[in-house]
Computed example of a mutant assay.
Amino acid sequence: MIQFPNAKINLGLQLVEKRPDGFHNLVSCFYPVPWTDALEILPAQAESTFTLSGLPVPGAPTGNLCWKAYELLKKDFDLPNIQMHLHKVIPMGAGLGGGSADAAFTLKTLNQVFELSLTIEKLEDYARQLGSDCAFFVQNKPVLAVEKGDVFEPLELDLAGWHLLLVYPNLAISTAEAYAAVSPCFPKNSLKTLLTQDMAAWKETVVNDFEKSLFPQYPVLPQIKAQLYEMGAVYASMSGSGSTMYGLFQTPPAAPLPFPAEYSVWQGVL
């Protein structure tokens, strides 16, 4: 079976407080985006294998979240050996949740292929053991994420028809680095309420709190954000803890795009 794990963007990200366990409580809208990897899982006669292609993925294959997802289910179910292949397209360290999506889609695919009859709730429980935002990709629909980003509240937000431009400046920012410089605080306004405003107002109200600490360190990020607005974006922001910047447009941005060839750029319609 072949699946296509997709990315997500964050519409606003409020860092509320540091938790006793060292993580942070946050509030953010997770919104699925059709920029995808490709994942294939087949039963195998011989021993289990996991192979990779596409963008180079650091670390040993057995440390990959896809393999960890397989091992997690294998502890509780009599899974047979498998052949698993991941073709990596979504950049890593980009704030797009690509690795988390790969893990969640591995769980969902194994559930389908081997008829494990796992409920959505049970799949989300397994996904939370692999990473804070993995569980989002089980249902893969817009939500308001709270706590560590692994608890979800329903959100009526439909951006269907909006044009999205993603710009990854070939700059990986680790989650640890991003969180090291933040100063969490309780927001004055509810993000859920702010997102009900007309999108033209988001420029001043819907903020990713990581921008405050990361923009001074990486001047290319505010530069890209400014370029997106110059191109006509109604709203532009950083996704997650960076470093992908994105713009939302009512019509497709005009070519040629003003970004260097070494950047990864994706555009499409939501």
Rank of each mutant, 00 (worst) to 15 (best):
P20A: 13
P20D: 06
G22H: 04
N25E: 13
C29G: 09
F30Q: 04
F30G: 04
V33T: 14
V33L: 14
V33E: 01
P34R: 14
T36E: 11
T36F: 07
T36S: 15
E40P: 00
I41N: 00
Q45V: 10
E47F: 12
E47S: 15
F50Y: 14
P56L: 01
P58A: 06
G59H: 09
A60D: 15
P61L: 05
N64V: 00
N64H: 13
K68L: 11
E71G: 02
L72G: 04
L73C: 01
K74E: 05
K75D: 06
K75S: 07
F77I: 04
D78W: 10
N81I: 00
N81D: 09
N81K: 08
M84D: 01
K88D: 04
I90Y: 04
M92K: 01
A94E: 13
G95N: 04
L96C: 01
G97P: 09
G97N: 04
G99Q: 11
D102P: 03
D102E: 05
A104V: 08
T106I: 05
V113K: 04
E115T: 09
E115P: 00
L116D: 04
T119P: 05
T119Q: 02
I120H: 10
D125V: 07
D125S: 14
Q129N: 10
G131I: 09
A135R: 01
F136A: 00
F137P: 00
P142D: 09
V143W: 03
K148P: 07
G149Y: 02
L155Y: 07
L157M: 14
L159I: 09
A160P: 00
A160D: 06
H163S: 07
H163Y: 10
H163D: 08
L164G: 08
L164Y: 07
L164A: 07
L165V: 04
L165E: 00
L166D: 02
Y168F: 15
Y168L: 06
Y168G: 01
P169D: 02
N170L: 06
L171M: 11
A172V: 03
S174N: 10
A176V: 14
A178I: 09
Y179G: 08
A181G: 11
V182M: 07
S183T: 15
K188L: 15
S190G: 03
S190W: 00
S190C: 07
K192P: 03
K192T: 08
L195Q: 09
T196D: 15
D198G: 08
M199C: 14
A201L: 14
V206T: 05
N208C: 12
D209V: 01
D209N: 11
F210S: 12
F210T: 05
E211Q: 11
K212H: 15
S213K: 01
L214P: 00
L221G: 02
Q223G: 11
K225E: 14
K225D: 09
L228C: 08
Y229M: 11
Y229F: 15
E230N: 15
E230G: 07
G232P: 10
A233N: 09
S237A: 12
S237F: 01
S237P: 06
G240S: 11
G240V: 13
G240W: 05
T244L: 04
M245R: 03
G247S: 07
Q250G: 12
Q250P: 03
A255G: 06
L257N: 12
A261L: 12
A261R: 10
A261Y: 05
W266L: 02
Q267W: 09
V269K: 10
